[in-house]
Write a protein that binds this DNA or RNA. Structure first.
Length: 220
DNA sequence: GACCAGGCACATC
DNA sequence: GATGTGCATGGT
C-alpha cells in the first residue's frame, strides 16, 4: 500500500523539488519558520534575511531579537520564532562550531535527540531538518500524512507521530530521496484534497477509499 | 469576516 | 496522561 500510494501520487504530480538548490542553512531556517504556517509567508522572510546577508549561523545569532523579529514578521508567530531560531542556532554554534557539515556527520539518532532537546524544535521540525537540510533518511510526518492515511483506513485514528513514522520507515526502502519526495507529495495531495474537510473528487487516491467514503474522526 | 496553514510548549485538570 | 490555549501573518 505504501508503495502504491507513492506511485499514484508521483504519476500524477511528478517530482516536487522541495528545497532544491538552496543552502542547507536556508532549509534549516525555513524548517523553523514554516511551523504551522503557509510556505508562501516563509519565502518572504527568508528573502529578507538573504538581503540583509544574515543567512549565516553566527551572523543570525548575533542579530538583535527585535531586528530579527521584524525581518521574519511575515512568517507569523514572529516573536516566538525568533526565540526558537536562536535556540537552534545557539545549539549549532556551541556544539558544532556553527558547521552544518559537522552537525550532519553526527549519527542520525543522536543528532535527532539533540535537535529535539532544543526548545521549539519538535519531531516534525527536527525530521525536516534531518531530511531536507541533511539529506538523511528520516521520514517526516505531518498533519496531511496523518489525515490521508487515517481517512483511508490505513492507520488507526490516534496513531501518534512516532508510530506513523515507523510505519513508513519499516515499509519503505531506507532512502532519503524517496522520503523527501513522498512527504512532499503527501503535502501536495493534502493541500488539494485532504484539508480539515476532505475533497475527494479528482483525488488520485480516491479509488482507494473505503466503501462509504473517507473515514472521519471527530477532531483535526 | 471566518477559516486555514508543512507545530510546539506550557498550563491546567 | 489527556485536553486546552497562546502564538500571528497572509491567502482564500
Amino acid at each position: 500500500m505504501l508503495q502504491e500510494v507513492y506511485e499514484r501520487l508521483y504519476r500524477v504530480y511528478g517530482p516536487q523539488h522541495w528545497w532544491p538548490g538552496e543552502t542547507a542553512f536556508e532549509v534549516l531556517v525555513g524548517a523553523v519558520l514554516v511551523q504551522n504556517t503557509a510556505w508562501k509567508n516563509v519565502e518572504k522572510a527568508i528573502g529578507n534575511l538573504r538581503e540583509e546577508g544574515l543567512l549565516d549561523p553566527r551572523r543570525l545569532l548575533a542579530t538583535e531579537d527585535e531586528e530579527l523579529a521584524e525581518l521574519i514578521r511575515s512568517a507569523g508567530y514572529y516573536r516566538m520564532k525568533t526565540r526558537r531560531l536562536k535556540n537552534l542556532l545557539r545549539m549549532l554554534v556551541e556544539r558544532f562550531d556553527g558547521s552544518l557539515e559537522m552537525m550532519f556527520a553526527e549519527p542520525l539518532e543522536e543528532l535527532r535527540a539533540k535537535l529535539l532537546a532544543v526548545n521549539g524544535i519538535g519531531p516534525e521540525t527536527a525530521d525536516s531538518i534531518l531530511l531536507y537540510a541533511g539529506n538523511l533518511p528520516k521520514f517526516v510526518v505531518d498533519a496531511y500524512t496523518y489525515r490521508v492515511f487515517a481517512r483511508h483506513g490505513w492507520i488507526d485514528f490516534g496513531t501518534d507521530y512516532h508510530e506513523l513514522q515507523a510505519h513508513f520507515e519499516s515499509g519503505l526502502e531506507r532512502d532519503a530521496v524517496l522520503y523527501n519526495e513522498y512527504h512532499a507529495l503527501l503535502v501536495r495531495v493534502g493541500h488539494l484534497h485532504c484539508r480539515k474537510t476532505p475533497k475527494c473528487d479528482g483525488c488520485p487516491l480516491a479509488e482507494l477509499l473505503p466503501e462509504g467514503g473517507p473515514l472521519e474522526p471527530d477532531f483535526f
